[in-house]
Amino acid sequence: MPAHLAHKAPDPISPRQRQVGRACRSSRSLAPFAAIAALALTSAAHAEPLMDGGKLVLTNGISTVEGASGGGLATWATIAGMETDRGIGISAHVTGIELADYGWQSHGLSVGIRDRVELSWARQNFDTRNVGAALGLGKGFRFNQDIFGAKLRLVGDTVYGSPWLPQISVGVQHKRSLDGAIVKAVGAAAADGTDFTASATKLVLSKSVLINATARLTNANQFGLLGFGGPNQTGRTVQFEGSLAWMLTPRLVVGGEYRTRPSNLAIAREDDAHDLFVAWAVTRNATLTAAYADVGSVATFDGQRGGLVSLQFAF
């Protein structure tokens, strides 16, 4: 950043220009054309790669359980992928969660475009194990859901710029339960739903702390795995997602998140979710996250907490 590259080149003639000069010495009238040809060659040689991979490590966030980049549980204002504002980036993740009575597996892909737009997809597979038998769904019944997300960075930068201006993004997450008949049978008003998010994220360098706050308009039950809306509340309500993370090294972050959730279904209470996580950028392109996650009561089975492991590759 503070490179005071104080003065102009003492001798700005490149070897290529010298060659051109030599080639032109007996036909000097051609020099301008040769110079243009040399410039064209130079710009072709300096063509920037589409995937520049120049983002600072970890500033692409960690894929959330809904596919958008963030802190694992909460969606952040970050844009997925390792691209900067001059390229595109891609990201892929796989996440597993072991809860008291359930198993969770999700995976997804996302694309970041010029650190401005994020497009994401995630598939969630929620294994009911023995609960499935108790609920009459069958042992090991799986609720499945696809989530298609888009996020737009409006203003600001997580790291740079004014310390008082966070990176602010808005997003949309369209969720499609693949178990429409069953989620409606448990009381959900719809099998598809769309969440809207607004997030502000800032790395407060003077304190080595990252702060995120997100407002989400949603009527999803258990992220949407149990459908959308219900007897208690059909429409969307505003929910809050907060994250606080502490940077230990440029590649190691520990933090916690809290996420409020609506409780729309009459047959089963839904609680707020929270987690404590450690994220480690093993390399520039691979991030391993481990977390303790607590989602409270799920389908009448209380105390659903356990361990989360997530692996993300980003380029």
Binding site: M1, A3, L5, T84, R86, G87
Partner: peptide, 13 residues
């Protein structure tokens, strides 16, 4: 001091 260096965000990073 950075005039005409053509620096990008990736260079800064």
């Amino acid at each position: 001091s950075h005039k005409d260096l053509g620096t990008t965000r990736a260079d800064l990073n």
